[in-house]
């Protein structure tokens, strides 16, 4: 299997995630875009792990840790969004300007 197409697709997923973060207005949609970025990173890790044929399989182990941390991040992120929604009655990030100077 040739390496380049997979890496280019991972780069495409990463930039689509960046686009989603910049453009989306709903905070839950921004969290979805962050998941897309983490997924691109996972693809890169697995690809390089298989390519280098690492004896310790550090790419796969790191990917498992990333998936775990991502699950924790989503839990906390959605709790924060929920809290903001309860206080402001909206989930639009352009209306959260409490810390804006």
């Amino acid at each position: 299997m040739i390496v380049q197409p997979v890496l280019v697709v991972a780069a495409a997923l990463f930039s689509l995630g960046i686009y989603g973060i910049l453009v989306r207005r709903n905070a839950v949609m921004v969290l979805l875009s962050i998941e897309l970025i983490l997924n691109a990173v996972n693809i890169n890790f697995i690809m390089f792990d298989t390519m280098l044929a690492d004896v310790l399989m550090q790419g796969q182990i790191f990917t498992i840790f990333i998936i775990t941390i991502a699950a924790a991040e989503v839990g906390i992120g959605l709790a924060i969004v929920l809290m903001l929604f309860r206080n402001r009655q909206t989930a639009n990030i352009n209306e959260f300007d409490l810390m804006k100077w």
């Binding site: 299997m1 390496v3 380049q4 890496l7 780069a11 495409a12 990463f14």
Partner: peptide, 18 residues
């Protein structure tokens, strides 16, 4: 970002196979 990344990746891993 996409064009920068893919330029670097395509040039850096030319001919590599898994």
């Amino acid at each position: 970002i996409f064009f920068l990344f893919s330029y670097i990746l395509v040039n850096g891993f030319e001919g590599e196979v898994v």
